[in-house]
Amino acid sequence: MTATGPATVPATAALALGDDALVLSHRLGEWAGHAPVLEEEVALANIALDLLGQARVLLSLAGDEDELAYLREERAFRNLQLVEQPNGDFAHTIARQLYFSTYQLLLHTELAAGNGPFAPLAAKAVKEIAYHRDHAEQWTLRLGDGTEDSHERMRRASEALWRFTGEMFQPVEGLDADWAGMEERWLESVRDVLTRATLTVPEGPRTGAWSAGAGRQGLHTEPFGRMLAEMQHLHRSHPGASW
């Protein structure tokens, strides 16, 4: 795919945003064949496809999309640790979607309003992300305010992923955004959904000593290596293979 943009694209930022989209897309794709109902399988695959499209445009701004996706080692990826977390049960996937899509919507809304190199993609992506955010919100409400079991699972998931949410608001070089303001709006938005879902906002810290901004610097959690091995296996075994 060819995308047009000014020649001076901040590569760090293109990689950070592109890797977020690529890695989450792959995680969501892992649900194919395993989702609780057929409609959700289709929904998660569609969200994954939107993210893959965004990743392709962003990685192409930074270099060769296939080389970047398939031939980089773990330490060269710049995605948030949140998006590489395993799918877990359906509630974990939904909590990850809620946290990430709320962040992505705020960030891309800001980027779309500016006139930087990411504005054209952001203006397009923001419309897609609005549907992802809505999907996550509706499921959080349904699970949180559902049965005793679904409530408990949604509570556990929202708490387990909480410590990965602080990293999202570490400024990214080359992105002009009001990070502190976004963080405030993110907290407000997530609190509103969790409260309506009869859940409480987790109390734990939103970063650990080792996880603050770590993914953006190439430090990843243990499951990420296994995910990459699966994602890159085919291309590495059969270089240049195509459908």
Binding site: E40, V42, N46, I47, L49, D134, H135
Partner: peptide
């Protein structure tokens, strides 16, 4: 509404 995403990303069921 049955599902927010249908046969393709651009459709709902």
């Amino acid at each position: 509404l049955l599902s927010r995403f249908s046969s393709t990303a651009c459709k709902a069921l």
